[in-house]
Each structure stands twice: as C-alpha cells, then as structure tokens.
C-alpha cells in the first residue's frame, strides 16, 4: 500500500494530546467526577496502541499464518470478555458461547471477504486478517453488548410474556420470538442508520485513513462498502449465534429461565 501520509512527529502528537485538555477542563468545570477515569482511559489507549503497533510491526514483518491466527484468537478472547462484561451478563455462564459466536461470526465473514471479495492469495495475510478482522470484531462486539444484553434483560423483565406464550402452546423458540426481535432490532439499527447517512453525514475512519494513506477515493469507497456490508452481516450472525449458543444453558428442562444469568451488581 502507498504510504504517502504525512508522518506525525512526537512533538506534533503532543499537540494532539493538548486537545484533550479541553474536554478535561469541561469535565472539571461541571464536576462530572470523571476526570480520573478519563486520564486513565487516555493513558490506557496510548499504552495499548503503542504495544499493538510494536506487535503489528513484528506480525507484519513475520507474516506467518499461525502467528496472525493466534493474535486474531487473542483479540476474539478479549472481545468476548469485554462483551460479556459490558452487557451485564454472568461471565461464567456466557463467556464460552460469546467466544464461540464471535469466532465463528467474525472469521467466517472475514474469510468470505478475503477469498471472494478481495481474492487474496494469502487469506491469512496480516493486514487483512488482523486489521479487517479487528474492524469486524469491534462491531460484532458492540452488537453483542447491545443485543445479548437486551435479549436477557427483557426476558427477565417480561418473564410473564414468555410464560404467556408457553402457556398458550408455544414452543420455546416461538415464545422467545418477541425477544429475538427486540434484540436484533437494537443491535442492527445503529448500523442501518449509519449506512443510511454514510458519505453525507460522516466519512468513516477506514475510508478517511485510506485516502490520507494515498489510496484513490474509488478504491477507498469500494473497501468501505465491502467492509460496511461485512460488518452488517457479521453483527447479525454473531449476535444470533451468541443467543442460540447461550439458550440451552439459560433454561431448565421445563423451559423456565434459570436465575442468576444477569450480574446482580448491574442493577
């Protein structure tokens, strides 16, 4: 790939950090009590990205399929942990199905893109496996946090509705239909909305990065379209898998929802 982007010197980067003073000052003025957390978040971001840039440097140099796959699986592990944690679900219960859902959903879409759309010779090539994979994973992660949380929270909140269905002769799957609808709607709506406004309201980061990096707008747009559709499919598949793989562990033999699936500390 062309690397004609202007390099950013350390001094210039320091100026960018200076920008953070503005929101921090606003937080301080309005006493949001979030300054400490924000400073830690900025430090974490810096350390994590610096570490990843080193890791990527070696992975790109090496470009061994098993090393790339190994790192991809690590990313999926982190994502599963974060998705389960942030959706307020019981970690012990949901970590395995969420991990499996993210792995299957992300990798299957990624390999489809790499083989059918991009027609790569090496589908395990680091820039595609790790960078595109990371983008898919990040979005699938958001989808699962929203969708899986919504599914089980509404199932607890509207347990009468689920039981009403069962009592009226529904199979478990039929009685769960409204909860599937709610969860999928919540998880997919943001992507649908961003597709509807893409290009007009905002230019996505990937496209902006590619154009600054020297790609032609035409190539950048084609990549953006492909990745956007891939993200859309990836969210739907990962979320549906995450719910289905969690279902058997979430109900007893009588089809009644088990207690303790949500973390009680989460309100």
């Amino acid at each position: 790939m062309d690397t004609s982007a202007y390099p950013i010197s350390t001094a210039s980067l320091a100026a960018a950090y200076g920008l953070a003073i503005i929101p921090l000052a606003i937080m301080l003025y309005y006493q949001l009590g979030t300054v400490r957390r924000t400073v830690i978040a900025i430090i974490r971001m810096t350390v994590q990205l610096a570490a990843v840039s080193m890791l990527l440097f070696y992975l790109f140099e090496w470009d061994k399929w098993w090393a790339n796959m190994g790192w991809a699986l690590c990313m999926i592990g982190f994502a599963a942990l974060s998705a389960t944690n942030d959706s307020g679900l019981n970690l012990r219960f949901f970590l395995p199905p969420v991990f499996a859902a993210l792995a299957i959903g992300t990798l299957s879409i990624l390999f489809f893109i790499n083989t059918i759309v991009l027609k790569l010779e090496d589908i395990f090539a680091a820039p595609y496996l790790i960078i595109l994979g990371g983008m898919l994973l990040g979005n699938a992660l958001k989808g699962i946090i929203i969708g899986l949380g919504a599914f089980f929270r509404s199932l607890y909140a509207e347990q009468e509705r689920y039981e009403f269905g069962l009592a009226a002769g529904a199979s478990r799957q039929e009685a769960l239909r409204p909860f599937f609808q709610e969860s999928l709607r919540a998880a997919l709506n943001p992507t649908v909305a961003s597709m509807a406004t893409m290009g007009v309201v905002f230019l996505p980061g990937m496209m902006a990065g590619q154009i600054i990096g020297g790609s032609s707008p035409d190539t950048a747009i084609r990549y953006q379209l492909a990745i956007m559709l891939a993200i859309f499919a990836c969210i739907a598949i990962s979320l549906l898998l995450a719910i289905h793989l969690s279902l058997n562990r979430s109900f007893d033999a009588y089809g009644n929802i088990r207690p303790g699936l949500l973390r009680s500390t989460n309100g």
């Binding site: 269905g165 009226a168 002769g169 529904a170 199979s171 039929e174």
Partner: peptide, 8 residues
C-alpha cells in the same frame, strides 16, 4: 400471535 403458534 397465539394462533400463529404451530400447535394452535
């Protein structure tokens, strides 16, 4: 919805 269940 209830009449849409397979059993009904």
């Amino acid at each position: 919805e209830l009449l849409g269940f397979k059993a009904n």
